[in-house]
Design a binder for these strands. Sequence first.
RNA 1: GCCAGGAUAGCUCAACGGCAGAGCGGGCGUCUCAUAAGCGCCAUACAAGGGUUCGACUCCCUUUCCCGGCACCA
Length: 464
Amino acid sequence: MSKFYLTTSIAYVNAPPHVGFALELCQGDVIARYRKLLGNDVYYLTGTDEHGQKIAKAAEATGKDPAEFVDHISESFRALTSALNISNNDFIRTSDKNKHWPGASEMWRALSDSGTLYKKDYNGLYCEGCEAFKALSDLTDGMCSDHKKKPEIIKEENYFFRLSDYQDKLLRLYEEGVIKIIPEHRQNEVNNFIKQGLEDVSFSRPRKDLPWGIPVPGDEDHTIYVWADALVNYISALGYGRGDSELFNKFWPADLHIIGKDILRFHAIIWPAMLLAAELLLPKSILVHGHIQSGGQKMSKSLGNVIDPFELIDKYGADAVRYFLLKEIPTTQDGDMTKERMADIYSSELANGLGNLVARVAAIAEKKFDEITVSNSIFKKNVEAIWKKYTENIENYKFNDALQNVFSLVREGNTYIDREKPWEGDNAKNVIPNVVYLIINIGWLLMKQKPHVVKGEALFPRVQ
RNA sequence: GCCAGGAUAGCUCAACGGCAGAGCGGGCGUCUCAUAAGCGCCAUACAAGGGUUCGACUCCCUUUCCCGGCACCA
């Protein structure tokens, strides 16, 4: 049995879950369930990224200490995975000293042993107003754009990673297709970025500036910066650095990392370079999704267009929310989600379409049958054709098209019933088993492990 | 500015060098098993200009507009 290891990115816990992360979880879940259907031994990982100055500050703002703060928020992400019925095997937290820290430390040692880390003075532009270092690109006319002040130059000692050494290796690796980036235009972005030349990146921060993080092994005045911390979750979760290599040996390398477009570079450049340096195997592919907007605009509190995934799940149920995200947001493009659109899709496609189909069939079946045997069906050929298209679409990560395939069967079922009028005479005898066959297949296509309808409970009841 | 992608029906998206498709929404009609659901029919679209071609929405050029990338914010 072949294995399949897939991961989402780990969510940064400076704020409660966003629908964007719900999207990523759902995309991963489709792939995980599909792979299981194929008989693969699947391991699906998600989790939370919990270190960094931003979180330390966010914690301070709420008067909590960082550990307490991240526990709270991380829990809401874990709750989201349950609420959405995500089939993840594990949930890794970077603040987990037992599970994650040994892996990050081990990675650091491996990098250090390979000679790819070195200490260097770093001249940072520090804005007192922001209490943070600024990149040149953050400045307007040499001033901090938020505080209209000139940042001061602060010299600090950092460890640097020799990313520049990996420029040619990475380029070759992508040319040879060792790691595949989906969609293709993201691959082009990465290639172009590498061709522009890679500079070494800073891999640590002084402990005094960043106490909320993992200490550099053997040099406790420094904290491991995000790269060698967060990215390592993909292997620390499997036991890397913990002396427990069973999962790691079995599942690494990752078959698929699912990420948002905002963190592509880290996954396509820094992470593979780290793995090369540490002499570990490289992930096989990276699927890059877009961002969800609401009403054509970025979601923001001030616009009042923020969508809370929990609110939608409460109202419509996990299946409906999953359906929306996968069907309405093209997998690798930006999408749009509004509460109105959610309501429309729910009522027209799920309640009126599938829910009602099941209800009308169940009502007739109950009246006219003691039991139903489904052997052959006039829908067999159609269903097989749909399975074929659907499989192709899932393999190509076109979840929206795959769902469209499934719903063409719903329409077909409804049309057939109208034509055959199973409520008249004894037409039901042949008609109902045919439609039941259809519905069973729709259930499988929607990857419901146990498709069933509970008597007296409507599937996708109408929601006001 | 540089690099890349896009502009197709009210909305979200397809397709194709030779009569432009789907879903949702809208209009009209209709069945009554069903969740005031279903089914049928209809309407509306190739950003603008030029070129290549027997023929272009599809290929090329120009213009306009939109979006993404151009490193330490995760």
